[in-house]
Amino acid sequence: MITHVSQPVLEVHDLTVSYEQHPVLWNVDLSLPAGKLIGILGPNGAGKSTLIKSIMGLITPTSGYVKIFDKALPEVRSRISYVPQRESVDWNFPASVLDVVVMGTYGKLGLFRRPGKKEIQVAQNALEQVGMTPFASRQIAELSGGQQQRVFIARALAQQADLYLMDEPFAGVDMATETAIFQLLQDMAAAGKTVLVVHHDIHSAMNFFDWVIMLNLHLVASGPKEQVVTEELLRKTYGGKLNLLTQVTDLIRKQDFNPLKR
């Protein structure tokens, strides 16, 4: 059940990704429409973060390619915003909330130039959107998990992009914050931005997303929520490991080389 669209915002073409010796994503092929709030669902280890990181160019795929706005990544990088997993950074780093959000403007600033009044204004607007203005001068180490997540989202907003890729932005977030952030993301989608979110909770996914991608080492489904979220596809996605694929992966891992790499 994979729905393709014409004039996609994002096209992933036959993408296979391997870590060292073993493949973690097999032949993912999908295209996504603009102005939608899109969820990436799947069990742990299904390759959700890997897909996002490959789109962002943080991992080099074994084969296949990604096109964004019909162009290669380096040409359109300033139009894409990325939210890494919260645990990927050391929150004891000496920085204030505003310091971190200003980092969102670094991409447009480029090397050498320092952030000035304009950049700080952009960052403050972003903080206001996520309701973190009172925390602007707070040290990031003093924030709760949910607040840290909102700081990361504010940093993404400060990038003023058209496509947003968010890796588990709701991990460790309480219900009230989750609803508030989803509201914000829906507003962004309504304003024509495309928001791609790696997500865990199938329940809230049903409520909020327009379009759903289901992964389990391979692409199970990609399409409008109403068509994709069916019992059969959910079972295919979450119903345990795919025995054969896992065994093949193990087999490849035991080799000294990766036969999929060309």
Partner: peptide
Amino acid sequence: FRLMVFDPNFGQAIGF
């Protein structure tokens, strides 16, 4: 350098 230490993945993502 601040970006390199705090969040190198993000740095790479914005093209640094």
